[in-house]
Design a binder for these strands. Structure first.
Length: 803
DNA sequence: TTAGGTTTCG
């Protein structure tokens, strides 16, 4: 029985208006006087212990009593019947093995209960049906649930505690919300707030380097302000259960701080969250680990409003990727079932998963010893043509190890990589979940009740495993043609037979020459050819990007960001020289960082006509900045030049570092051919009528020989008569992608990989490869010992409908 | 404390 302090004014008002005629009402509110109900229960009813409830037994004169620990929002079943679900806990037997039970309430009773029931209240039900659940529960909840409705003759008695009584007498009077929610544009540093937001980006919980799990969530709300929250908790379950962008969250007691000039959310003591499906029209059911939470009609309305706003203001990703639709060199999220797992080595772990569809390319198999492979052997064998191996690395290993076979997963940002082993003629596809958490890379476990899981389960059950075992190596088969790319395949085949995937930009009058004739001829000459691309190098396309000096004709690798970082660190040891600040052509600002390093930073904004320009037109020079700071500045300003102070002038850093950053591109100078000139030469550009700050112009006045980004690839071309290797040397024309931008633009990287997949589709026999029409020129390269003939592709571009 | 979104290069 409920226990209240005796001093409490017990004569509180019942929510009686709707429920005055107790005899006729199936849902009754009971008044409690000094711990006892004022109105006794009908005398024929006896209390039943939860342990004794069994399907098929006679419970006619029994009642079940418990405290409401959880209530779900009122929903409607398909046939329009109202439905309300609560969880009752037997507070008299809290520590017994079974201490709670689900109560499913239907029809008018559901509606009535939803209006008045609050968590913590004592709930008594008689005239229930006991229904056995299909699966055994392990969470202390009863293996049966109770079904309750007016039609079944059920009766419900609710003892309301004064503290939780809603202010309303009737459901038609709205209840004042207990919580105040702050819009994202009104957040203030140092406050703890409650808020709602739509998930714009998230990292599923991962093991942090400290003691907790971490999840990073970026929210947006109708004020159009974004907030990135960093959430920590030692308990995985206590972090928000976000499954996709567009989900809606409600955070309670999140701390707001300013970080890098922006508001940031971080977990504070007592942080709690609810997560909702963001789909308009989906049931408003919170996902949470909290046993107790508030959720009222007003909040349901808020969710529905946010869903509608999000529908037209948030770009929701397209249809989910399936294995049948994967392309090499893409990052994608996969919803799948785990069928096998194995430790590979200390830093990688294998997950075998399937989604019922077949990957159109040959997929790799990670070699592991049979004894190390966990999973049902028979099923693994049956699924050998459908399941794929995903290798997860580093920080994902720990989470992967803990996954249960059979569970449903969403793996975020899997990388499909094209590769070929020494003993393979055709390349295969590899699936990697690389280390780190960029772009939300990680693994999430989806509950069985998730709608995507329900759909996947239904689909997996419909897959005929006998069929799939017959399709050994028929890679373009697609079990699920509605999701497949049949038309793409047909197009590809047509193209194989006749059209060329490349076109000539000049010399159309030239006729084709067979490859054998070319290799038998002396160089230099020019030819038009029609051939197939059997293979190309490098297969890792990022390795094809080099820096070229047109003066000395040298090629060099694009330096890694680390090198730049190292140089910046080194130059930060030289403090900005105040005598060089604020000259006739630039204005300077300086500050010292607040951290332990007390780093001095100076930024010099180059003026135009003695005035500062708009940031997007401004060139600035920075001393003492970090990689990240410089990167941020490039987002906002036209150009950034990293410099350091000498005694009498500013100077460029070592030429291993970019001398200029513009947009996403780092511009480098040739060490051999550059003769740096004084920085003040920039003032001549600043004095132009409309300074454009073109990299070539900036390089010229600074005495820098600009290195150009270029794609260098080796194509192995074949026709009926022979084969030859031809080099592609392309700034932009062939792929119609600027080589300078590819390293920092994942969209362009995908575009280039897709182009290569069209030119040389992986897993295809030679006869099924498309034709390429190209111009090539032969040339001689002589060294001390021999003369060699090389070939280079020119005046050729990828066909318009390929890119 | 942890991370503070901005893909690996195995």
């Amino acid at each position: 029985m409920l226990c209240h302090p005796p001093s409490y004014p017990w004569a509180w008002c019942l929510r009686k208006t709707l429920y005055q005629d107790k005899a006729a009402m199936p849902v009754q509110l009971m008044k409690i006087i000094k711990g006892q109900s004022e109105t006794p229960l009908p005398s024929h009813l006896q209390k039943e212990n939860l342990q004794h409830l069994k399907e098929g037994c006679d419970h006619t004169n029994k009642y079940v009593q418990g405290v409401v620990t959880l209530s779900y929002p009122l929903t409607k079943l398909r046939d329009g019947t109202d439905f309300f679900k609560i969880v009752l806990q037997d507070s008299d037997n809290l520590f017994s093995q079974i201490n709670s039970i689900n109560v499913l309430i239907y029809g008018k009773m559901a509606e009535d209960c939803a209006k008045i029931i609050r968590r913590g209240e004592t709930f008594i039900v008689a005239g229930f049906k006991v229904i056995k659940l299909p699966t055994v529960r392990e969470d202390g909840r009863h293996g049966c649930h109770l079904e309750v409705s007016e039609e079944a003759g059920s009766a419900i008695y609710i003892y309301t505690t004064p503290g939780t009584t809603a202010a309303s007498e009737t459901a038609s009077v709205s209840v004042a919300p207990k919580y105040v929610y702050t819009p994202l544009n009104h957040l203030k540093d140092g406050t703890i707030v409650n808020l709602y937001g739509i998930v714009k980006f998230f990292k599923p919980p991962y093991v942090s380097k400290g003691t907790d799990y971490c999840s990073v969530v970026t929210l947006v709300d109708p004020s159009n302000v974004k907030l990135t929250c960093t959430l920590f908790n030692g308990n995985l379950d206590s972090l928000p259960k976000i499954y996709k962008v567009g989900d809606i969250v409600r955070f309670h007691r999140i701390k707001i701080r300013e970080y890098n000039g922006q508001m940031q959310g971080i977990t504070s003591a007592g942080f709690a969250s609810l997560t909702f499906d963001g789909t308009v029209g989906a049931p408003v059911v919170p996902r949470t680990s909290s046993k107790v939470y508030t959720f009222m009609d007003e909040e349901q309305k808020t969710i529905e409003e946010l869903r509608i706003w999000a529908a037209s203001n948030i770009s929701i990703s397209g249809p989910a990727a399936r294995l049948s639709g994967v392309q090499p060199m893409l990052f994608f999220d996969l919803t799948c079932q785990l069928v096998g797992k194995a430790k590979v080595d200390g830093s990688s772990f294998l997950l075998k998963v399937w989604d019922g569809t077949k990957c159109p390319y040959p997929t790799w198999k990670v070699p592991v010893e049979a004894k190390d492979l966990e999973g049902e052997k028979v099923l693994l064998h049956q699924l050998r043509n459908l399941a794929v191996d995903i290798l997860v690395y580093d920080n994902h290993v720990q989470l992967a190890e803990s996954l249960k076979i059979g569970s449903f997963l969403r793996i975020y940002s899997i990388h499909t990589k094209q590769a070929s082993a020494d003993n393979e003629d055709v390349s295969h596809i590899e699936f990697h979940l690389h280390g780190g958490t960029c772009y939300g890379r990680g693994i999430g476990v989806l509950p069985e009740c998730n709608p995507d899981v329900k759909e996947l389960k239904a689909f997996l059950e419909s897959v005929d495993l006998a069929d799939s075992q017959n399709m050994e190596n028929t890679c373009s088969m697609d079990l699920d043609s509605t999701f497949g790319n049949v038309t793409d395949l047909e197009l590809d085949l047509q193209r194989c037979q006749q059209l060329s995937v490349t076109v000539l930009t000049d010399h159309q009058d030239l006729s084709n020459t067979e490859l054998k004739t070319i290799t038998n001829s002396t160089a230099p000459q020019q030819y038009r050819i029609r051939a197939k691309l059997r293979t190309y190098k490098p297969q890792k396309l990022h390795q094809s990007v080099k820096l070229h000096c047109s003066k000395c004709n040298s090629l060099q690798e694009v330096p890694y960001g680390d090198d730049f970082d190292f140089i910046l660190h080194g130059s930060a040891n030289t403090a900005p020289n105040p005598e060089l600040h604020n000259t006739s052509w630039y204005e300077s600002v300086t500050w010292t960082t607040q951290d332990q390093k007390q780093r001095e930073i100076a930024i010099h904004f180059v003026k135009h006509d003695e005035m500062l320009q708009h940031p997007e037109d401004t060139l600035l020079m920075i001393e003492g900045g970090t990689l990240k700071e410089i990167w941020k500045l490039t987002k906002r300003f036209k150009c950034v030049i990293p410099v350091r102070s000498t005694e009498d002038d500013l100077e460029l850093l070592d030429l291993s570092a970019p001398f200029l950053l513009q947009g996403n591109v780092k511009y480098y100078g040739c060490k051999q051919c550059s003769t740096p000139k004084p920085i003040k030469n920039l003032s001549s550009i600043a004095a132009e009528q409309q300074p454009s700050w073109e990299p070539t112009e900036v390089a010229q006045v600074l005495g820098i020989e600009l290195l150009q980004y270029v794609f260098i690839m080796k194509f192995t071309l074949v026709d009926e008569t022979g084969a030859l290797n031809a080099y592609l040397f392309d700034y932009e024309k062939f792929f119609q992608i600027p080589a300078s931008e590819i390293l920092t633009n994942s969209f362009l990287q995908q575009k280039m990989q897709m182009t290569m997949n069209t030119l040389c589709p992986p897993g295809r026999k030679l006869g099924d490869l498309p034709w390429l029409e190209c111009f090539i020129r032969s040339y001689n390269v002589r060294d001390a010992t021999k003369n060699q003939v090389y070939y280079q592709i020119f005046d050729t571009t990828v066909a318009e409908d390929v890119v």
